[in-house]
């Protein structure tokens, strides 16, 4: 078994879910309104979505916005912490990699000035 969302019918908190759908690298992924992007991905059995320089897969680690391992691109916003951002219906999520580009990998979209984070690599 893997991460999963508690079934609404058996959940003691008495949820009244409203479905939403996002896309991850173009593939549709279903979640419910209120979930973070990390929550949607985990509940859809995706445990990892970002690659490190070595190519090692990463997903959620700290879950509270500290470790920056779950970063994704949402629309044209790079480096969004998936555990901190609530998913909106229709969000187009793109996964990120820090792996040096290989000949086969799809060319990542050019990084615009306004998208760079000033907090990194000081």
């Amino acid at each position: 078994m893997s991460p999963r969302r508690v079934h609404a019918e058996s959940d003691a908190v008495g949820r009244r879910d409203r479905p939403l759908r996002i896309t991850v690298d173009g593939e549709p992924v279903d979640g419910i309104a209120g979930q973070t992007i990390a929550g949607v991905l985990l509940a859809a059995d995706r445990l990892a979505w970002r690659r490190q320089r070595s190519g090692a897969p990463r997903g959620v680690f700290c879950g509270i916005g500290v470790c920056f391992e779950c970063l994704v691109t949402v629309g044209d916003e790079r480096d969004v912490r998936a555990c901190q951002r609530r998913a909106r219906d229709g969000d187009a999520v793109t996964t990120q990699t820090r792996e040096p580009r290989t000949g086969h990998a799809p060319k990542p979209s050019p990084r615009r000035n306004s998208d760079a984070s000033a907090g990194e690599g000081k």
Partner: peptide, 26 residues
Amino acid sequence: WELPGVFAAGAAQALAKGERVVVGDR
């Protein structure tokens, strides 16, 4: 400890309490 599926304990709690997502069943 860098493998996916290893969580800081606070992450597992935040997901369960705040999103009703459990990190696993074992």
